[in-house]
Simulated scan of single mutants.
Amino acid sequence: MSETSWLRPGETSQLDPRTLIERAAVTDVVVAAGLLFDSGEFDTLGTLYTADALFEMRPAPEGFPATVSTREQITDGLARLWQHNRETVGVHSRHATSNLLVTRLGADTAEVYSIFTVTGIYTDGRLGLRRLGNYVDLLHREGTAWRIAHRRLYMQGPPPVWPADGRDTDQPDTDQPGSEQLGPEQPVSEPAQEPVV
């Protein structure tokens, strides 16, 4: 695994022990992000992101930025969203991350596609489906651990599993409406409606 390579489902040549270990590690990070959000463990959640991580929502809910940058802004924004959901909406969310597919894997870079389903347990006893979508996570290795460097949430149509045009998926789509990147000095705006991550 000296360079990043595109993985193809079913290729047995990609199932050597080292690759299987790395694939398990990167998928654990993707799953842990949802579980830690649900339980409100934001200090631990922050350790799953690189210091300069990007977090995108396509499309962004009204009143919520399309792109948030840095570990601190990501975890701060998610913590405020969690608090809003609990105190204003009266819901405890549960993220189910499924259909994880590692599409790229190299010595220091990995990419994982997945589907997320968010359900809610409301304080009045109701249960409900809150959101369906896709994650595309780009992870970088930091020492012996994998960390999310760029997370994209697709909340409408699913993204292509492999880019048709062959461009580098490490970079955000700056030509997409609302994809302006927030700098470290810019706070995450308060959500005007009920965004669900």
Score class of each variant (00 low, 15 high):
S179R: 11
R151F: 06
N85M: 14
E142K: 06
F64Y: 15
G120P: 02
S5E: 11
L81M: 15
T123S: 14
T117L: 11
N134P: 02
T88M: 02
W6V: 15
R141G: 04
A60H: 07
P65W: 14
H84P: 00
S13K: 10
H140F: 04
R131E: 09
G77H: 10
W6G: 13
M155A: 14
A60F: 03
V136D: 02
P65T: 11
P172A: 10
T70I: 08
P160V: 14
M155Q: 10
G178L: 09
F64H: 12
D173F: 05
M1H: 14
V102F: 08
T50R: 05
A145Y: 01
V197P: 01
D28V: 01
V30W: 01
A66L: 08
T4L: 11
L138P: 00
R71M: 04
L101M: 15
T27A: 06
T12N: 02
D137S: 14
G125P: 02
D52F: 03
P159T: 03
R147M: 07
L54W: 06
G77I: 07
F64G: 08
P184I: 14
Q14C: 10
T44M: 04
F55E: 11
A192M: 08
A60G: 11
E180D: 13
I21N: 00
N134Q: 12
L48M: 03
I115L: 02
V29N: 09
T12E: 12
A53P: 00
E3R: 10
L100V: 08
E3S: 12
V161A: 11
D137I: 04
L35K: 13
R147K: 15
R151G: 13
D168Q: 03
L45P: 04
R58P: 00
H92D: 12
P160I: 05
Q171F: 11
A60K: 08
S5D: 01
W82I: 02
P65G: 09
F55H: 15
P184R: 14
S13Q: 07
R126N: 10
S189K: 05
R131Q: 15
A107G: 10
S179C: 07
A25Y: 00
P158R: 12
Y154D: 05
G128P: 06
I148M: 15
H84S: 12
S5P: 00
T174Y: 01
G120L: 05
S98H: 03
V196A: 07
L7W: 04
P191E: 05
T44H: 03
A192S: 15
R8N: 01
D108N: 14
H150T: 02
R152G: 13
H84L: 15
H84R: 15
G157S: 13
T174N: 00
D76Q: 11
E180A: 15
Q14V: 04
L100A: 12
L54P: 04
G143K: 04
T117M: 04
D168N: 15
R141T: 07
P158V: 05
L78P: 02
T97F: 01
P177G: 11
H92Q: 13
D170Y: 02
S93F: 01
R94L: 13
